[in-house]
């Protein structure tokens, strides 16, 4: 018998690829510590053993795309003291938010022989559009380090360190040569939030914007520079409509370049 109950953690899935939940399973070294520090009460990807709520912390992956999920998220919120959304789907609507710019019914008719059995919403929306969210972890997928940081910050009663500044900060600290200036490669880094460790530029690729808009993003200035580099409006629209297509700043910039 333990004298002090361990905090109960639940992991929930909505419309998503499971990649962010896998980041939690990927914490091999840290997972044993996590298991020691908290009760994993509801995490069907890891264990069939489900403990009843309420839960101290809920990690929510995925976006809201069906009427059923729009209901279910309220049940999750009611059972959770602290609700943390993880990943681009949960924080911005995800790649599936590309549907927000098209006619979903038309798409469904291409894919399904009997689309009338399909119950789906016109838009893929982030969790925060539906319920109060205590903390958001960005990324597609989330960074393992930021996840461990957030859980340990919660367990130790402190604020997690997940800075909202640009990816450029991480590039420069690790000494990566700027791909935009030195190679002429369009890069989303100057308007994208740090957290991944600036992986893509270190492999000579432009940032894809997986972590969504940084604080005070000036997407217009970036788009102007890309135009000067010869990128077409179509190219600009595609770049801002990635994994965070429905994040406010990226959505507005993509709409400004639609022809």
């Amino acid at each position: 018998m333990r004298s002090v109950a361990k905090p109960k953690l639940a992991v929930w899935k909505f419309a998503s690829c499971d990649g962010c939940q896998l980041s939690l399973l990927d914490c091999e070294d840290e997972l044993l510590q996590i298991v020691g520090a908290i009760d994993i009460a509801n995490f069907v990807e890891a264990s069939r053993n489900v403990m009843k709520g309420p839960y101290d912390v809920s990690l929510v992956e995925g976006s809201i795309t069906t009427p059923h999920d729009a209901e279910r998220i309220h049940k999750v919120r009611r059972q959770s003291k602290l609700l943390i959304t993880i990943g681009a789907c949960a924080t911005a609507g995800g790649i599936q938010a590309l549907r927000n710019y098209t006619d979903v019914k038309q798409y469904a008719s291409y894919v399904y022989s009997n689309p009338e059995f399909l119950e789906t919403l016109n838009k893929s929306t982030p969790i925060a559009d539906h319920v109060f969210v205590d903390f958001e972890l960005r990324g597609c997928p989330i960074s393992k380090a930021q996840l461990v940081e957030t859980v340990s910050a919660f367990l130790n009663g402190r604020k997690p360190v997940t800075p909202p500044y640009s990816v450029c900060m991480e590039c420069k600290r690790r000494g990566t040569v700027c791909v935009m200036v030195a190679h002429g490669t369009p890069c989303m880094g100057p308007v994208t939030q740090a957290g991944c460790g600036a992986i893509c530029p270190s492999y000579h690729r432009g940032c894809y914007g997986c972590f969504g808009p940084k604080e005070t993003p000036n997407t217009g200035a970036l788009a102007d520079q890309w135009k000067a580099m010869g990128i077409t409006n179509d190219g600009i629209v595609r770049s801002f409509r990635g994994f965070n297509a429905y994040a406010d700043a990226f959505r507005k910039e993509s709409e400004a370049h639609e022809e």
């Binding site: 340990s152 360190v161 308007v191």
Partner: peptide
């Protein structure tokens, strides 16, 4: 874009921030 590149490439800029981390057991 307030991306901070100018300050990080600057050879005289010296500002730093402090980050504290804890392990899961505390």
């Amino acid at each position: 874009m307030s991306c901070a590149n100018c300050t990080l490439v600057c050879p005289t800029c010296f500002c730093t921030t402090i980050e504290d981390t804890t392990d899961l057991r505390g």
